[in-house]
Nucleic acid binder design. Structure first.
Lengths: 104, 104
DNA sequence: TTGACATGCAACCATTTGGTTGCCTATTAT
DNA sequence: ATAATAGGCAACCAAATGGTTGCATGTCAA
C-alpha cells in the first residue's frame, strides 16, 4: 500500500498513468514522446509504477508494452479514502463547541 | 492536488491522520504520544499536512488543537480515483488480443 | 550481415526529505 | 514571581529521490 501512495506522489508518474489511461498498451518510446525528460528518467518512473503494481508490462519482440492496472488505485479508494468519508467527522461549526468544552 | 498526494505519500503522516480520525482535535503532544519520533519531527509532518489542507489547527491558550479536514481526501477520491475506476480499461485477457493486433 | 531501433544498466549529481539536537518564547499553575 | 508546560525556530545530517550521461544488449529490416 505504501508503494502505491509513494508511486502516486509524483506528478510525472501520475501523468504517465494518465497517458496510459488515455491510450493503454504503449511502448516506452511512445510514453516518452513529448515529455521533457530523458527516456531513462521515464524508465525509472515506470519501474516504480511496476513495483507498485500500477503498471503491467508485456514484452513483444524488442518492444515493451505498458498496461495500466487499476486495481491498486481502486483499493486505495476502498480501503483508505472511504474510511475518511464515513463519519463526516466534525463539521467546522462544531469545532468551536469542542474548544469551549476544553474549558469546563 | 500535488500537495495532497505528497502529504499522503508518507506513512507517518497517514498514521497521524489515522490518529486524528480516531480522536479528532488533539494537541501536538497528544499526537506525539507513543510515537518513535521527536516532537519536532511530528511538527514538521503536521506542517505538511496543514499546507495540504488535510489538517486545520486552532490555538487555544498554549495548546494547538489539530483537526482533520476530510475534504482534500474526498476530492482525490472524486477527481482522481473515480477516473481510473470508470472504463474498466483492458481486462488482462484482452491484452493478449491487443498484442496480436500489433502483428497485423 | 549490418545498421538502425527499442530497451537495459550503471555511475554520477543536485535537491529534497525525514529526522535530529539545542535553544527560545509563550502560557499556565503554584 | 517562578517553575513547569506547550509549542516554535533554526542549523545540521544522512539517506532517498529525480534526474542526467554514456555505454551495452537484443531485435528487426534492408
Amino acid at each position: 500500500m505504501d508503494d502505491v501512495f509513494k508511486a502516486l506522489a509524483d506528478a510525472s508518474r501520475r501523468s504517465l498513468l494518465d497517458r496510459l489511461h488515455a491510450n493503454n498498451g504503449q511502448t516506452l518510446n511512445e510514453l516518452c514522446d513529448g515529455l521533457a525528460m530523458t527516456r531513462q528518467a521515464v524508465t525509472k518512473h515506470l519501474v516504480i509504477l511496476e513495483a507498485a503494481n500500477l503498471v503491467t508490462t508485456f514484452r513483444h519482440g524488442r518492444e515493451k508494452l505498458h498496461y495500466l492496472n487499476p486495481v491498486p488505485i481502486h483499493q486505495i479508494g476502498e480501503r483508505w479514502i472511504k474510511k475518511f468519508e464515513r463519519g463526516k467527522l466534525t463539521a467546522l461549526g462544531e469545532l468551536k463547541r469542542q474548544l469551549e468544552k476544553r474549558d469546563e
